[in-house]
């Protein structure tokens, strides 16, 4: 179910920018199931880690206020062509996924 897509593009301010699209419901815990009337429990990505060549450069903290299927962009100014960028996330239920790509 889980799928994570990653795209690396050149940033205008120099360096590169990583865009990550993670497929995730990001439930707030406030929404109700229309059929049963029960609240749908919270289910959201907590942490998303970005690393270049195995070294963590940034960690995004997400919450229920982030949209469904989050699209997260982060700058990696020091990355060079040929570097490996890895992204991994963990949600509040312990599910996780990751993606890897080499900078062109």
């Amino acid at each position: 179910m889980a799928s994570t897509k990653m795209k690396i593009k050149k940033s205008k301010s120099g360096g590169y920018e990583v865009m990550v699209l993670a497929k995730h419901p990001m439930e707030t815990g406030l929404r109700k199931d229309k059929k049963t009337g029960n609240k749908i429990p919270e289910h959201f990505i907590e942490n998303m880690e970005f690393s270049v060549n195995g070294e963590v450069v940034a960690q995004a903290n997400l919450g229920t206020g982030v949209s469904k299927n989050p699209l997260i962009g982060v700058g990696i100014p020091n990355a060079k062509s040929g570097d490996t960028v890895t992204v991994s996330w963990v949600d509040n239920k312990g599910e996780s996924d990751s993606a890897e790509k080499v900078v062109k």
Binding site: S11, S13, G15, E17, M19, F50, V52, E55, V57, A58, A60, L62, V66, S67, P70, L71, I72, G73, V74, G75, I76, P77, N78
Partner: peptide, 8 residues
């Protein structure tokens, strides 16, 4: 190694 850019 990170930069000043964040989009969501």
């Amino acid at each position: 190694g990170g930069g000043g850019l964040y989009s969501t």
